[in-house]
């Protein structure tokens, strides 16, 4: 079940990234392509087999996991800016690119690196499962590491949350509103995933559900906007004129 969710997410990200290639060649919204590409890399690195392969190349010290965190940070930062501009959320844009946003990005980065260095990270393991199993000390550190890594994405999406709700309640086209709904749902999932350290192990599968549904919602939401645009371009414009 979890494997299905993982590979579905990866496949979807891949497809969306590839679908954007023609747009990139035309020079439209190049940064979106990179956002999707970064997301694809992030998903790839969170699945066992590809993670192990990459980490072996990087020395088997789980540096791939650290790379994964910064890939997510970068992707989510550009995504946040794009979304804030698109949805005319000046407040969110100011929050993300202003001193508060930079401070949170710096704090999250430092926390991730610091906790990573404190852990005994020898032995490749996707999601640091093996490190978690070493002893109580490392287990606690892995939880903090995960929380620090989710802090920044949660901040960015939470900053955009009001704009999503505004769009949802507006009179914009249905596809655009559904995409806002998906993005808002993704935000909720990311924020819930912050709770990972306190989720009891019996509900451990919920962590995966939160993580992957967050990415799925974000990617689907973004593709819906693209779909709406393509459809609107093809269909003749319906104008509420002075009839």
């Amino acid at each position: 079940m979890i494997a299905i969710l993982q590979w579905t997410t990866l496949a979807l990200c891949c497809v969306v990234t590839l679908v954007r290639v023609p747009s990139v060649l035309r020079g439209e919204n190049r940064s979106l392509f990179w956002i999707f590409a970064l997301m694809t890399v992030a998903i790839l690195l969170s699945i066992d087999a590809p993670y192990l392969a990459v980490d072996q190349v990087l020395g088997g010290m789980n540096f791939a996991n650290l790379v994964l965190r910064f890939v997510i940070f970068g992707g989510i930062f550009f995504l946040g800016i794009r979304l804030a501009r698109g949805f005319s959320a000046c407040d969110a844009l100011k929050l993300i690119t202003g001193p508060i946003g930079i401070a949170i990005a710096a704090a999250a980065s430092i926390a991730v690196v610091a906790v990573f260095l404190m852990m005994d990270t020898a032995g490749s393991s996707a999601g640091l499962v093996a490190v978690f199993a070493k002893d109580g000390h490392n287990a606690a550190l892995v939880e903090y590491y995960g929380a620090a890594g989710r802090l920044y994405p949660a901040f960015i999406t939470a900053a955009l949350f009001p704009a999503m709700l505004r769009t949802l309640r507006s009179g914009l086209p249905a596809l655009v509103r559904s995409s806002a709904a998906l993005l808002a749902l993704g935000t909720v999932a990311i924020c819930l995933s912050l709770l990972s350290p306190v989720i009891p192990s019996s509900l451990g599968f919920m962590k995966f559900v939160f993580n992957y549904s967050a990415v799925l919602c974000l990617v689907l939401g973004l593709s819906l906007i693209w779909l709406a645009k393509s459809l609107a371009k093809r269909a003749p414009k319906k104008q509420a004129g002075m009839a």
Partner: peptide
């Protein structure tokens, strides 16, 4: 105009 802006940035 809002829709156009969304498409311009995210489409």
């Amino acid at each position: 105009a809002q829709t156009e802006k969304i498409w311009e940035n995210l489409g």
